[in-house]
Amino acid sequence: MTDKLDYTLSNLEQLEAESIHILREVAATFSNPVMLYSIGKDSSVMLRLAQKAFHPGPLPFPLMHVDTTWKFREMITFRDRVCAENGFRLIVEKNEQAIRDGINPFDHGSNTYTRIMKTETLKQALTKHGFDAAFGGARRDEEKSRAKERIFSFRDKHHQWDPKRQRPELWNLYNTRVNPGESIRVFPLSNWTELDVWLYIHLENIEVVPLYRAAMRPVVERAGGLIMVDDERLRLEPGEEPQERLVRFRTLGCYPLTAAVLSPATTLPEIIQEMILTRRSERSGRLIDHDEAGSMEVKKREGYF
């Protein structure tokens, strides 16, 4: 007889298997998929899962980074190195018109800025390249409207999400059918939590941007958050004086919109320990989510990831 009761899989092993299944399903059924690569910890995990899914073959799709031009410099360095080392095909998209127009997070507010530099750029790029499926690293535990989004999330010709017209999603049978011009956003990490992501990074020894680890960095205090002075474009308010503080980031985005936390955590176990003991959710460091209740849902309806 077989040793039946030993056929168990841990939570992380099951999550990994589910994600690999999703990644393969897209590669097998869509003609032109792309992986949105945001350089953060979730993207790093998603990328490793993609390597696993198609091993020993290469990734059967390119990576795309929507560069708002306000990302941390360390993120860009990390991105270029990771892609070069692994031979990933990388597409970088910027909103050249908006750059010429001087759109920035200070003068135009985080809402308008995000819509133009991120959402619009993304939509234009998806249309330009004719991508019919796009992977994103979003997780359901991040935010309430995400908790109700499908793993295969249908978008109409205008890349918009309609929460009331979502396709039923049962078992592991994903509906991958779209008409020309329509597309699917796919979230292989839907069922992962922040803790799962960090545990997996630890277990698999996945490299992440050094900004997640504590270091002395120049910051100013703004609206209760610590903003890093990553380059000379950060306009200092009267009386603001950059100070070297021991800080790190729980999430990474555009540096003027991403608050750091005071922390001495430099190793992964220390980072995980801090995350468990903290009383604030990770998105609390993201300034754009707090504009109004349901703001993420509104952005998603417009085509944000």
Partner: peptide, 13 residues
């Protein structure tokens, strides 16, 4: 924290 990590890597769902 190391005991904690060990425990969580083995957990099922």
């Amino acid at each position: 924290i190391h005991a904690y990590l060990e425990q969580h890597q083995q957990k099922d769902v």
